[in-house]
Design a protein around this nucleic acid. Structure first.
Lengths: 334, 334
DNA sequence: GCATATTTAACAAACGTTTGCTATGATGAA
DNA sequence: TTCATCATAGCAAACGTTTGTTAAATATGC
């Protein structure tokens, strides 16, 4: 009757050698002669020995595991970030726990807790709540799109304010003047900063951001569609929409399609993120590009640094990448 | 100097009680009086005690963790399946390790190994290689789109052959006769079965599947685009394309757009999966719907059953859901 | 050939839990 | 009062590793 799972001790018994030697041989540490090392390696291989990472983690206090919490894995923005993270992590022999909060603060907190219990080495988080809730966390934490006033955590993100500025300025340059804005969540920090950028652009044109024309929707196609409906039904004239992400912009486009509003003549639309579908010939959404995959890679790389230098308290890092305007066919030529 | 992480022993010391009592209290087991139980719970809470799941897993031999290996997280087909899996797992207090093989057999194998080492309770796998490689695995294994001749593993999937049949029959009913097929990978079992269904439909129309008109591409938009190019440049007349997934079909559409081929008059296109973008008003791709999210939920639920009944060897389960044809505007009316 | 340095390997403690067993004290029956 | 019963709580082993320390064996220097 073979054991469920064969351990270091089984190999040791088979070879009549102590298990400390097995451990050292397997980990390439010194203190074993080449001869016994080879013998051990061979036998371990032959017996199909697989180290138990739970036990390893317990003694090493390193689980080679990180947690990733995102609100929505089906939004390609997060999908691509996660792709970057998994690639970077597997290059470093790390595994990731994927947690999808579904925009629920409660679930996010629960996930955070179980990750702590799983003793992950670090966490990469896009919070839907308040980052300050995580203030006294001891494990390394990377923030996607941070905005904690205290700047307690490392973060990697695109310059959202500048992105919002680019998008809005473009609409204005195209001659649109009655801009509506569709945000994702009331207190999403990235949205806030994109709006701040928008305001800047408007001011350059002697305009001002009308709070009435900023609709709170949700970060999804359907959310964009209903928000667009609300926007148009307010009665105020609208000739352009800045959707805070591509999904929202896609939803707005859908609404215009349904109601026969012609794009880009009657109304111009610009999104944010540049998800892959935005570039399809049938869509060709004008949008602000974010280097999502690279963002993911950097998030992991920076987290890993943090993990390695856990001891020395270095100043928090805030890495900012540049967004880029992609002009396509949902805005008219200047 | 507070300890890095506070343990059961710290709580015990604080309370002057043995740690077995702590454990029993925390786990709601009997053998502790209500009085001490309350005292313990309160103190654990106050000290911010977080159980160590590594230690727990070590003794319980259950890690409350499952591994998921998919080829590509940015294909919404897998994205939605994973969403279903994560939702189901979090309902059951499980965490998932997300592994993205990038269609590489080597990476898939490596991931599989590390998952074993992490002592996951089970694995959900879409293999890009041969399932028989996993023949003598002891841990519960769920297969996405299985085709192991020996039927050794449980699986949940859509009836691919029927789906292929539906798509092809639809093209024929619309009057298209010169069908080209774009497959994802040479030996992808789902593709094979979709083609078998296609063959059946062709035969009903007295036609036969011409191997020359089956192109091996890759499961991506770009893959679909170049495969479509190849298909048309073969010189044989083509008036319809069945892309083995929506990404491929989208790529074919893109090629047609670039070369001025009009859809659906000159050429009809049908895809497979019904990813959310296929339904956008600008796209409206005719395709075969798969209930992806539900697939994910069932995959996890079935795996969990397996985990719980690990002992008794039950016959392998093969759950098959029905696909559904979504007729939209990339095929002309009958 | 002897003392010493060095390599190799074994022992045992530790990591943070769970749990079977035992000891203690209280309770109840006779 | 005495004995059996029972609820409560403590002890210690176990899970599968890593690693500091010690012991044995071999090699080195004179």
């Amino acid at each position: 009757m073979s054991p469920i799972s064969i351990t270091i001790k089984d190999v040791a018994r088979e070879l009549g050698v102590s298990y400390s030697s097995i451990s050292r041989a397997l980990n390439g540490k010194e203190g074993v002669s080449k001869e016994t090392r080879d013998k051990i390696l061979e036998m371990a291989e032959k017996m199909g020995y697989q180290p138990n990472d739970l036990a390893r983690g317990l003694v090493n206090k390193i689980s080679k595991t990180v947690g990733v919490i995102v609100p929505d894995i089906n939004n390609p923005f997060f999908g691509e970030i996660v792709a970057g993270i998994t690639d970077a992590s597997s290059e470093n022999e790390y595994n990731i726990f994927l947690c999808v909060s579904g925009w629920s603060v409660k679930r996010e907190k629960e996930y955070f807790n179980t990750l702590i219990q799983k003793r992950v080495d670090g966490i990469i988080l896009k919070s839907v709540g308040d980052y300050n809730d995580y203030e006294n966390i001891k494990s390394p934490l990377m923030i996607i799109e941070r905005y904690d006033r205290n700047q307690k955590f490392d973060s990697v993100e695109v310059d959202n304010e500048f992105g919002g500025y680019l998008a809005t300025k473009h609409l204005l340059e195209c001659g649109y003047r009655k801009l509506g804005f569709i945000s994702g969540r009331e207190d999403d920090s990235a949205c806030k900063r994109r709006l701040r950028g928008a305001q800047k652009a408007l001011e350059e044109y002697g305009l001002t951001l009308n709070k009435d024309l900023v609709i709170e929707g949700s970060f999804s196609i359907e959310g964009g569609r209903v928000a667009a409906k609300q926007l148009f039904e307010k009665g105020q004239p609208i000739d352009a929409i800045f959707g805070m992400n591509d999904l929202i912009a896609l939803g707005a486009l859908q609404y215009c399609d349904e109601t026969g509003i012609s794009i880009p003549d009657e109304v111009g639309v610009v999104g944010f993120d540049n998800i892959s579908y935005a570039g399809l010939p049938q869509i060709r959404l004008t949008t602000v590009h974010q280097p999502k995959y690279e963002l993911g890679k950097m998030l992991f790389a920076t987290l890993l640094e943090e993990i390695h230098n856990k001891e020395e308290k270095k100043p928090t890092k805030k890495i900012i990448l540049n967004p880029e305007l992609k002009i396509r066919k949902t805005t008219r030529a200047k």
